[in-house]
Design a protein around this nucleic acid. Structure first.
Lengths: 242, 242
DNA sequence: TATAATTGTGTTGAAATTACACGATTCGGA
DNA sequence: TCCGAATCGTGTAATTTCAACACAATTATA
């Protein structure tokens, strides 16, 4: 026997998908070829189905778009303003995902009319999606300062300068090369492969991989190879609008 | 014209209400005198109504129980496992609230069959409420380490030792009295009133109030008058079960 | 008036952070 | 083939922060 309360609403899921192209943070956005808001930009989203948990639905949505099913995915906020969706009362549970751009399924992305767009050049998005991006970035910044999740955005093998560029992109700041390197190595999270980065134009840096057991261990705990200021909540967002 | 998608579900809100009694953290829990789970302990909750945002609904629920409407309230996670509510598919948006125990409406609490229960003596709760409490505490710990929200649990005037006891309760740890005092005062958040704490049995400490403008400013920013270890995510929870 | 408990402030050594310096590697053009 | 520009890797010293501890002052109680 169901509850007598009658107000049942649609539950949507929207995913902020972050990627890193070696220079800056990118978002995977959709140019909608369906209603409502045909032709406008939005996040990838969908509705919760029967017999599906929120986690499962979010995974499904990211998988549909990227072909990836083993990436970092974290629920961060639920948006429930009354008229956030003008079509019908809908609450949206928002997740952010960190994906390695190299692993994506290019066909799936083309099929959905999606593109990677630099965070700095983000167009205006539909509904409250701009706000969602802003909140996702805030959460990513806090999370990445406390946990070593940045690696989720990089290929399996990477150099320390690449890692530094990533953190500089996340926090929109500059870090000292030498101090960063020392801090990262002191965490024991990296294992040198001996190989060199052949894609580099000048001096080829050493490629590292994650020390997997240590990585799993530190996922739960503390982190912080960033300077103090990084944690501040009120720094400027590198968003073109909102 | 509504969406053609048909799966509409009940949206519940559950509130983890924290209070501080001078010694430890307490939860405001309900001994249910209604179905389902008659006679068992649960969090205060309710359903989302038509024409009501999530924020508004959470405020309503806290207000109904405590008579307070100006307390700290933060959404922290949405729970959506398929069978989390055996009666009917329901997703629950969870909020945690920080209230000053002294300001509560005792009649409202009695009416709802609610009591303050020490976190250390928490009984088994219904559904996934134990997990909600655990996650709320985790979030409170992270949040309180980065932002000066602890004051929300104290009366308008308080002594530094009282504040210290509060932080020791939140993190289930001991802090050095002298270092704590110095750190707190260095934040510029406190203003001495000159008055003494007349409730103390021994030496009467000075009463402080919040430096309101500075408080608002730092709400957004960084904080941290706690030692490093505090930030760790994997410390033991002072919960009797789960 | 002495004692116990607690509050307020100071000091010091250790550790972490920051700001730089320098040599090594690689590519490309003279 | 050699030189310069760019980048990578490691080192060091000054500064700042943190943690541990000492001691004097206040108040209730015996």
């Amino acid at each position: 026997m169901p509850y007598t309360h009658t107000h049942r609403v649609l539950v949507a899921l929207d995913c902020i998908i972050f990627g890193f192209d070696g220079e800056g943070l990118n978002l995977l956005l959709i140019k909608r070829h369906f209603e409502p808001e045909y032709g406008n930009w939005s996040l990838m989203g969908g509705f919760l189905n029967e017999g599906e948990s929120l986690e499962e639905a979010a995974h499904r949505i990211v998988y549909d778009l990227t072909g990836l099913d083993n990436n970092y995915l974290e629920q961060f906020q639920t948006f429930g303003a009354i008229n956030r969706d003008p079509v019908e009362r809908t609450i949206s549970v928002a997740y952010y995902a960190l994906v390695n751009i190299e692993d994506q399924d290019v066909n799936a992305i083309r099929l959905h009319n999606a593109s990677w767009i630099s965070l700095h050049k983000k167009p205006k998005l539909i509904f409250d999606h701009d706000r969602m991006v802003q909140e996702a970035l805030k959460r990513l910044r806090t999370k990445a300062a406390l946990n070593p999740i940045g690696f989720e955005l990089l290929p399996g093998k990477f150099t320390i300068p690449q890692l530094q560029k990533l953190y500089e992109a996340i926090y929109d700041t500059k870090l000292d090369r030498r101090n960063f390197s020392r801090k990262v190595l002191s965490t024991n999270l990296l294992v040198g492969t001996g190989e060199k980065d052949m894609s580099s134009q000048t001096k080829k840096g050493q490629l590292y991989t994650l020390n997997a057991p240590e990585y799993v261990r530190q996922q739960q705990g503390n982190f912080g190879f960033l300077p103090e200021l990084i944690m501040a909540d009120d720094r400027t967002m590198p968003l073109s609008n909102t």
